[in-house]
Amino acid sequence: MSDEVYKEIILDHYKNPHNFRQLAEPSFKADDSNPLCGDHIELSVKVADGRVSEVGFIGKGCAISQAAASILTDLIQGKTLDELKGMEKEQLLEAMGNPDLGPVRIKCALLSLKTLKLGLYPYMSARGPTP
């Protein structure tokens, strides 16, 4: 693993995570963990007029998993549900500054995105197609 993993942006978000809170009345929420290393993320999202109006996360784990979750909460603000659904892992990794992660730690980075989709899909199907 190269020096490129613990980039400033990752360390900043790890040490001072953004949106580190649980929303009181989220539109949907989900939690997931990475059983191999014990990373855990709980994500809650509030939707207004078809767009993300508020996001919160809480969690514990390694710097990569926690920083990624913090960066994701910034990234999805104001996005439509379809935009969330279509979000690719590359978008998150790019926002993280494309750290040079190996096959093991990429799972830490993508845990929050996986958690988001875990909450999003049932919410979207319960809501039915977007008008």
């Binding site: 190269s2 290393c37 784990g61 390694c62 710097a63 730690r105």
Partner: peptide, 13 residues
Amino acid sequence: DAHPHDIAAVLDR
């Protein structure tokens, strides 16, 4: 101050 994964990753450098 650090999660075990981060310890191992920094030690690897």
